[in-house]
Amino acid sequence: MTHADPDNEASFNVCVVPSRLAEIALPKQRILDELAHFQYAEEASFAMKLALEEALTNAVRHGNRCDPSKRVTVRYAVNERKAVVTVRDEGGGFALDKVPDCTSAERLSTPNGRGIMLMRAYMDELCYRDQGREVYFSMLRQSTRRPCSEKVPPSPVRRTVYFTGRVQGVGFRNHALQVASRLNVTGYVRNLPDGRVELVAEGHEELLDQLVQQIECDMKGCIADICTCASPATGQFHDFHVAG
């Protein structure tokens, strides 16, 4: 399919397009086709697609300022080991150290400036050349650097639990406090005037299950009945404590 060698820039394939966002699909597709040809994994293709999108959009938008008389030059080489891409614009360049850090708390809600960060996270190598007019990035087929994917963690929930029985004056609350402290859940435990103990806890569901099961097991002789209500977590607690 190609004789371009990722380690020899003189051999790279070249694709030149006018500086319009609608035009960048062509070089993108050519490079992704090469990855498919060399059977790069889905994760690698995801990473390259993201890096290409960011680099090409930056070249059109920030480099050439959407001026269609300017061009974007994409040079690339892919083999069974590695994929290398350079994207060059005809703008005035930029200073990488002037690009603000969007992960800082005060900039977290600004809409722009995450492209370079993402490219850096997904590529094995990334550097800017010629005062920022050209970006070079590469990705190994068997990269160990690629971010590993995790599932969205389940949201915390709230449990309100009423323990009935001989549960007051037996060290119940202190025991609940000890168990809760080990499990990284928040909330409180308190004695109610009617003789029951109320426990309110927030945290991940499986931790709350563990909390109640552990207390039930340890205080088995004292508990006559357990009544539990579930609701969304409010995030109002910072620790677990004995109240009242």
Binding site: L50, M117, P154
Partner: peptide, 19 residues
């Protein structure tokens, strides 16, 4: 894979994301 993009940019802290 998409959640990873939110994590890298720390936007998982800005948005309320549910499973």
């Amino acid at each position: 894979p998409i959640y990873e993009v939110f994590k890298i940019t720390r936007l998982n802290k800005l948005f309320k994301i549910c499973a």
